[in-house]
Design a protein around this nucleic acid. Structure first.
Lengths: 208, 208
DNA sequence: ACCTGAACACCGTTCAAGT
DNA sequence: ACCTGAACACCGTTCAAGT
């Protein structure tokens, strides 16, 4: 039976399988076995369909957050950070939509509230809580997006080629760091270290 | 005279004026006074044209970086942070492309090298330098992208509406923070505070 | 009430043709 | 060597028509 939910399901599946670029109204319609124009009463427009995908991703994220209620605030922030990264891996091309629109839907506000609570439990002054929420989520979303988009070039262009791309002497730090840059990149470990640093940052704002 | 540079100039102008969505091969061609297919020998494809826009933005960013050579490392990181935000404001719709591809062009490597140098001067151990470079730029790019995309909803949906969107009692932290959330959002001041926190984070990794 | 089908104004890109 | 023009296989969306 045709419904808004079934259309969004089909669209998200299609995006996960063939990419957001292949997720046209026509392709979604074909997947649900209907003519493109039949979608419009249910989703309004292509842009509104994409908003719907953001909602669906947030709804998927929410149970994750409920699960770590009652744990120490540091654990909660860490787990939220990991959750964002997993969400990006499940929906590598739709994930970018989270950067497009403000968190105004009920589910989005609930996610933000969970982070507010962790920051308040950490002892962050009220006035700094919304700022640190934005700092934390901006980093998590940015890292996950960079990762799925290949900005960190994992397994891609090697560091030697990168140094060679610049004029000799133009990138002295790359030369000094050559041994480190040539070693393999472990993004999971890196993200973990980043989250620890950010959690310490939160603690330092709390203890001020 | 038709050339790769003049085509990229036209494309970037068009994107700044009418948005990246309106920047079609056909529209760029019209602006340079030629048929769409005449662009292909110079830019290769639409995707390659977008890569060219990334290059152009980085080239624009580079003099900025050269200008603060010799200043203390904290100033250099701060100025790079501000520069990223200004770049986003100048190119609000093309900016998102910086999240799409790894920093492998000569100009991109030079930007990364300037940040490596600041981190090395701060006393960050070699092994942590590339990680903190990615942490810093990921936050700066993410904040600027959120800003130009309206993710922070400046002047948009008001906080009272946001709280009302959730079931009563579902967002206790929003209720506790109501006075703070109702006060006006100053993103410039917020970004400044964020950068100070991140610079302190760098110092803390250096002093460990 | 719900869906279809033709049509419109767009895309990026191929390919043969012009000068 | 450089550019044009027609054509192909796509888009999102409007609007009138069908059941």
């Amino acid at each position: 039976m045709l419904s808004r939910a079934s259309i969004l399901d089909a669209a998200l599946e299609l995006a996960d399988e063939r990419g957001l670029g292949a997720t046209s109204m026509r392709a979604v319609a074909e997947r649900v076995g209907v003519t493109p124009m039949a979608l419009y009463p249910y989703v309004g427009s292509k842009a509104a369909l994409l908003d719907g995908l953001v909602d669906r991703m947030l709804a998927e994220f929410l149970p994750d957050i409920g699960a770590h209620e009652g744990r120490p605030w540091r654990d909660r922030l860490r787990l939220i950070g990991y959750g964002v990264r997993e969400l990006a891996r499940r929906h590598p091309t739709t994930f970018t939509l989270l950067f497009d629109r403000p968190a105004v839907t009920p589910d989005a506000v609930r996610v933000v509230d969970a982070i507010y609570r962790a920051l308040l439990d950490a002892g962050v002054p009220d006035k700094d809580v919304p700022r640190l929420e934005r700092l934390f989520t901006t980093f998590c979303l940015g890292f996950a997006l960079s990762d799925v988009n290949g900005r960190f070039a994992v397994g891609g262009v090697n560091p030697r080629a990168r140094r060679a791309a610049a004029a000799p002497g133009a990138v002295p730090a790359h030369e000094q760091l050559a041994p480190v840059l040539d070693s393999e990149l472990d993004l999971d470990a890196e993200y973990e270290a980043d989250l620890e640093n950010l959690i310490d940052l939160v603690a330092s704002v709390a203890d001020r």
